[in-house]
Computed example of a mutant assay.
Amino acid sequence: DTNFTPGFITVNRGKRSIALDLKKPEAAPILWDLIATADVFAQNFRPGVIERLGFDATTVLARQTNLVYLSISGVGPRGPYAKKRVYDPVIQALSGFTDIQADPLSGRPKMIRTLIADKTTAVYASQAVVAALLARERTGQGQHVEVSMLDTMISFIWAEAMAPLTKVGQEDFNVAATPHDMIFSTSDGYITFGAVSDNEWLALCRSLNRPDLIEDPRFKTAALRSKNRQERLEVIEASVGIFPTAEIIAKLEAADVPCAPILSRPDVLSDPQVIANELIHELHQPGMGQIRQARAAAKFSSSPHTKILAAPGLGEHSVPVLEELGYNPEEISKLITDQVIIKT
């Protein structure tokens, strides 16, 4: 159990693991042999490290021109922050993400309580690599793809969060969020819902037994409802609070108002839609026992998922990978003895 964490398992399940000490010169030929078999080479060292190791993009692509070489960094390879140590909260701070989450009353910035920058950057990087592989399919040429966490997150939030700054010369620097967070208390829990269109607003008012709100001059039009958003949400929340969660969800669903109960993380596991999607799977993880994991989100009609496999130990496949590359037992034994490779 001490060898694995849930996070390690989630990001490494189903992979093969070879561990090389690249500070030892004997490791370089092994990595070159691996690169010769690869479609993609990915590295996320701080700027300057991969160059010192001799595997920078210029060097590698000169030797293998059809390779897609991916570099992921915190803020990019150049600029005043390029050599900063960066973790997810640093990027949330630099990208404006914490400003979006700021408390509307105190103005105090807040973090998202998950590794949003790390994981979103991984998704953007995967998309970029697929695009580069398609370009290679058409041209025969590989290329260097650079993705930074900072660039990713600013791009990610731009459409809605940076909308007030989009029009040059007409920026609105004083856009304040209303205190309401779109979570409504019921008599036994919490729900959320959206009533954007006029029809949804009418349906919401009727579901809450508040037809008087339909003619309320503060809420007669979408523009007025937006202008008086905080007041509107407070009035609605007071009306929601008298209903049990199941009852008000049933009424809103019957009226076709988008809604959902606020689920705890344990409740997610037993949610009927999650079960219908066959999303959560159990498997045996050596060193940890029986675990559960969410499958990959995408489904493919012609290449369906295989079952989720356990995560490897560090260097678990060092020996078989070297054997596949043509190394003989004596060479492998010496590499292990000299701690060029790690084998678990």
Rank of each mutant, 00 (worst) to 15 (best):
M153P: 01
V257H: 00
T2Q: 10
K167T: 01
P272M: 02
N44D: 02
A260W: 07
S302Q: 15
G189V: 07
D88E: 04
N228S: 05
A28Y: 11
K15P: 07
R63Q: 11
H281C: 04
G287N: 03
T152A: 07
M153E: 04
Q290I: 04
G96R: 06
L115E: 04
I191P: 00
E234R: 13
A296Q: 09
D338I: 11
I100L: 15
T2G: 06
A177H: 14
I112A: 13
V86D: 14
I308Y: 00
N209S: 00
R113D: 07
R218V: 08
A250Y: 10
N66S: 15
Y124G: 01
S71F: 03
E330N: 15
E234Q: 08
G142L: 00
I262V: 12
T10S: 07
P80W: 07
Y69G: 05
S106M: 12
R108F: 14
P211R: 12
F97E: 08
D271S: 06
Q273T: 13
G189E: 11
N277H: 15
E316Y: 01
V129H: 13
E200H: 04
G326D: 04
S126F: 08
Y327E: 07
A161S: 14
L94G: 00
Q293W: 02
T120E: 05
A254T: 09
F4H: 14
S71W: 06
F4C: 08
F45K: 03
G14T: 05
A223G: 08
K83L: 14
